[in-house]
Design a protein around this nucleic acid. Sequence first.
DNA 1: ATTATTATAGACCGCTCGTCTATAAATCAA
DNA 2: TTGATTTATAGACGAGCGGTCTATAATAAT
Lengths: 222, 222
Amino acid sequence: MMLRLIIKQTVMNTAKRGRPPKQARSFDDTKDALLLAGMAILTERGFNTVGIDHILKRVGVPKGSFYHYFKNKDDFGLQVIQHYDQYFCAKLRRCFNSDPEHPVNGLKLFIDEAVEGMEKYRFTRGCLIGNFGQEMPILSETFKHPLADCLQHWTDLLADNLKQAQALGHIAASANCDEQAEFFWIGWEGAILSAKVMQSELPMRKFAKGFLAQLISTEHAH
Amino acid sequence: MMLRLIIKQTVMNTAKRGRPPKQARSFDDTKDALLLAGMAILTERGFNTVGIDHILKRVGVPKGSFYHYFKNKDDFGLQVIQHYDQYFCAKLRRCFNSDPEHPVNGLKLFIDEAVEGMEKYRFTRGCLIGNFGQEMPILSETFKHPLADCLQHWTDLLADNLKQAQALGHIAASANCDEQAEFFWIGWEGAILSAKVMQSELPMRKFAKGFLAQLISTEHAH
DNA sequence: ATTATTATAGACCGCTCGTCTATAAATCAA
DNA sequence: TTGATTTATAGACGAGCGGTCTATAATAAT
């Protein structure tokens, strides 16, 4: 039976329980493939405007698979948000730790990468949380906390980074790092949105420039 | 026949050409009523997620009327944007001219009114342009310029206001008012979005505070 | 009067949505 | 080995969408 199992598995797939797909697939974790595609598609097109069929067609699985892994569309959306939060926090940690001697460079790296990403997808992919946020009024209540949590996670990570910069004397001792971090993410969401409207990196660059200028400035209005 | 005309008209309506509505309406300009409802509904729910039927039901007119006044849904959306731009620019002019001796107070008034408006609708109504902007990737190309134009109009109005404040010595002579105005609207879009996510006025207040702090600050980095 | 214009009324079609039921293979229990 | 269970894919289904269409009813023009 060991032999039989080996024969059954394709190059990419290991034999699995359940009804096998009609045609071989390029992945072996259907749920993960759906979440990955969901992140990309929902980041580009939002939640309510995207049909499940759209995601299914991209991944190449039938509808039944979707409803096997997810209770409903909301459940899927929530799990996509969770995946995105993990992905994004990991990205932030990597950027913020990239230059421990100059923590502010970590933020600059993040900004540069964000600009690169926006250009790569020609300003069609913004921020998943921003998309969901814009749709808040028509989303189920269950989305409220997960979305707010994401912003809080990012704020915490950035505040930490700024405090490190402050300890090194790179930003004014009088600066309130928590407030600065909140200010950054509030504005950054607008920068992504504006970049989509203008189809240009300029809003991102302009916001970053303004934020960094007042951050580095040693004098602050009381 | 003069008498007959007077008899025919209801309290609110004047006699008009064309087939009369089955039941009397509370408005006499159907197109305007559709645009007004469109502004409110699209500001709350976005463009692609809202069906024409939704707007028709709110206004109480049949589909035939919609397609009499608008070529298609895109045409409607574009005209709603145009209306919103006029409404919003008028609001800005009123606020910015409210205290000519202290132009910065005009911006503060705008911010206060925006917070009031967000609270009034319990953070369900944000910015129409922000909503459309978030949907850019799935909108027809025809939306691109009108949306960007709105942001430009607002930037021009704010830049003017800031220049007046600068002339009065209320903000630093070294400040670049055009850049400051751009910075404000970029970030403000994010503040509205964040307020929707958090269902709180705090993001708007925090962004406003940060923006005004660096604006008023007399010292600017190099 | 007759025709043209304006505007409302709502049926209809093709398409897509989210849900649901059926099917097929692997595994487990006896 | 065989039947029940679990896992996963397959696709049918009804509801609702946007947009078009024809029909209708009033005024205005000739």
